[in-house]
């Protein structure tokens, strides 16, 4: 088997290589493009203070003590301020299923990395607002 005998194989490999080069990659260009997240995704939380009754069930349910409650801080009639420490949170979903007043939910936002450790403790202002959609700030999409 000389070079000529292998020519067919070489052409087959080349065909495959060219097809792969010009195909859209299987992976995502992450910061600019993201995969679709299902509704049930357990990302960062959102706290709806209007409905909260300061029952502290979410704090008791948390297996890693990531939630801090401040019952003195009241905006509405009987609500409380929650501080979420995302350096500890394991996104198990127990606090959300413990809430009987529909005041605490997960959101599909999972990219919550920060430059400073302190910024990962979401105070009452940050945890009650959704400042952006998951894909909004990432600019133009590739392809």
């Amino acid at each position: 088997m000389g070079f000529v005998g292998n020519l067919g194989d070489i052409f087959r490999i080349l065909k495959h290589v060219f097809r792969q080069v010009f195909r859209r990659p299987f992976t995502y260009f992450y910061p600019f493009e993201d995969r679709p997240y299902p509704e049930a995704t357990r990302g960062r939380h959102i706290h709806i203070r209007e409905k909260c009754t300061a029952c502290a069930q979410c704090v008791r349910a948390c297996p890693v003590a990531a939630i801090r409650i401040d019952k003195e801080d009241k905006k509405f009639e009987k609500d409380c301020a929650l501080y979420f420490d995302y350096t500890r949170c394991i996104f198990c979903g127990d606090c959300v299923s413990a809430c009987r007043f529909e005041a605490l939910f997960h959101t599909p936002i999972v990219d919550i990395s920060e430059g400073d450790r302190e910024d990962l403790v979401y105070g009452p202002d940050k945890i009650t607002t959704l400042d952006r959609d998951p894909l909004e700030w990432r600019g133009r999409r590739f392809r």
């Binding site: 049930a40 995704t41 357990r42």
Partner: peptide
């Protein structure tokens, strides 16, 4: 898994008495 429970690996799907989702 993610579609059902919201998490890819650590599903925490069952709970004493049944399942969650």
């Amino acid at each position: 898994f993610e579609e059902l429970t919201g998490s890819r690996h650590t599903v925490s799907y069952a709970t004493p008495g049944g399942v969650k989702y």
